[in-house]
Simulated assay, not measured.
Amino acid sequence: MQNVLESLYYGDLVPHEQSASHSPEYRLLNEQITKSLNHWKKKLAEEDFNELEALTDLYYQVQEIDMASSFTTGFKLGATLMIEVLSGMSPPVPQQDT
Rank of each mutant, 00 (worst) to 15 (best):
Y26A: 13
I33C: 06
S19P: 01
S70P: 00
K42L: 10
S70D: 14
G74N: 15
P15F: 00
V14H: 09
S87N: 01
M89P: 02
N50A: 15
D48M: 06
S36G: 06
H22M: 06
M1T: 06
N50T: 04
H16I: 13
L28V: 13
Q95S: 11
Q2D: 12
L13Q: 03
S7R: 14
Q32K: 14
I83G: 02
S87D: 01
T98G: 14
E84A: 12
S23C: 08
I65W: 05
V85T: 15
E47Q: 10
E31M: 11
V85F: 08
K42V: 13
N3L: 00
P24Q: 02
P94D: 05
Y60D: 12
A68H: 03
E25W: 01
Q63T: 10
L81Y: 10
E53Y: 01
V85S: 07
E31A: 11
T80D: 12
L55P: 01
L37G: 14
A54H: 13
V14G: 03
L86F: 11
L29Q: 15
E6F: 00
P92A: 02
H16E: 14
L8K: 04
K35D: 14
S90D: 12
L44P: 10
E25D: 05
M82W: 01
E53A: 10
D66W: 04
P91E: 05
E51T: 15
V85P: 01
M82F: 06
T98M: 06
I83E: 10
W40D: 13
A68D: 06
M89L: 04
V14F: 02
G74Q: 01
Y59N: 04
V85K: 14
S36Y: 15
D66M: 04
T34R: 08
Y59K: 04
E47M: 03
L13I: 02
L8T: 00
T73R: 14
P91V: 05
T56K: 09
N38T: 02
F71E: 15
H16A: 06
T98K: 14
G74E: 00
M67Q: 15
P94K: 04
